[in-house]
């Protein structure tokens, strides 16, 4: 019999050898070494800045000097609740909700076809068909819509060719959603938002639909359900976590965007634009910070709801 000490190999020696042995013997040390750099980076730079910003929302701005008064106060939040600011918040939330619903409706057939019927080459095509627009340049996509919605652009040209210009004008004459032209109306803003965030809805919806067993759909129709009933009672509930996962993106991205409504839309502000205006020319960092709290709170609530619906498993 050998003594127990022989069972343990001698150390490797050398700087790297010793280090390697130490890390293998102490998994906690290894874990610490691996986690320290990313946590320091994200914790210090990202969370640090985030908390610094949130803290500033509890300061206020001196109305006479325009300087920030470093005293804890809720005055800035009172300012946030003025009717004009509440308008901005309501407008943004309504836009985010409509964009999310529209994306869900447009994304579903694409995702369903890709998940259920596309095979082989078509499957790859559909996947890339959602991936390429997702990753292609955000500004280029907005620019493309500026070209499309311009007065002399392709959309007006198509309407003119189809002799439907009157229809377009009737639409633009509607209150709220209309305007002088498409590129300065809420309809234009809405179209661009849907276009830009749609791929974020397709991919999670497709992932959820891939997991729906075909046998369930067959069982449903064997039991006498019409396609509409199968959709309503089987497919939709099973796809819902995926749709909610996608809606996290469409909702959050619309809430915080300030570039799309600035380039295509009326001059009435969205939350993102209000934040941008207050921190920039106005120099009112406390109010800008208070404005950023709105999407954070809405998204926190939204994520909590999504988690209860099991949406995170579909991401």
């Amino acid at each position: 019999m050998t003594s127990p000490s022989h069972a343990i190999l001698p150390g490797r020696g050398g700087m790297f050898g010793t280090l390697s042995d130490a890390l293998w013997r102490n998994p906690r040390l290894l874990l610490f070494v691996m986690l320290a750099p990313p946590l320091l980076w994200l914790g210090v730079i990202y969370l640090g800045s985030l908390f610094a910003l949130l803290a500033q929302s509890f300061f206020s701005i001196d109305e006479f000097s325009g300087l920030i008064r470093y005293e804890w106060t809720l005055k800035t939040y009172a300012e946030l609740l003025r009717p004009s600011n509440l308008d901005i918040i309501a407008r943004t939330v309504i836009m985010a909700v409509s964009v999310t619903l529209a994306s869900a409706v447009i994304a579903f057939p694409i995702a369903y076809f890709a998940a259920r019927y596309a095979r082989g080459k078509w499957k790859a095509l559909f996947y890339l068909g959602a991936m390429l627009p997702l990753w292609s340049s955000y500004l280029v996509k907005i620019y493309a819509w500026k070209l499309i919605l311009a007065k002399e652009g392709i959309l007006n040209w198509i309407f003119a060719k189809l002799h439907l210009t009157a229809l377009l004008e009737a639409w633009l004459a509607l209150p709220v959603i209309g305007g002088n032209s498409l590129s300065v109306s809420y309809t234009g803003t809405f179209l661009v938002f849907v276009y830009v965030w749609l791929p974020y809805m397709i991919l999670p919806t497709q992932a959820a639909l891939e997991r729906v067993p075909e046998s369930m759909l067959e069982a449903s129709s064997d039991l006498g359900a019409s396609p509409a009933q199968t959709f309503r009672h089987v497919l939709l509930p099973l796809a819902l976590p995926g749709i909610i996962a996608g809606s996290i993106f469409t909702f959050s991205l619309t809430l915080g965007d300030y570039i799309i409504p600035q380039i295509i839309g009326s001059s009435r502000l969205f939350i993102g634009q209000a934040v941008y205006a207050h921190q920039g020319t106005a120099g009112n960092i406390p109010l800008a910070a208070a404005f950023t709290v709105v999407p954070i709170v809405i998204m926190g609530f939204y994520l909590w709801m999504a988690k209860r619906q099991g949406a995170f498993d579909a991401l």
Binding site: S49, L50, L53, S252, D257, G272, V275, M299
Partner: peptide
């Protein structure tokens, strides 16, 4: 930790931007 990693992209970009700027 997963949440912390996802947060910079889950929160609207303007929040990350303005937070960094003020920091």
């Amino acid at each position: 930790i997963s949440l912390l990693v996802i947060l910079p992209i889950a929160l609207p970009g303007i929040i990350t931007g303005i937070a960094l700027r003020s920091a």
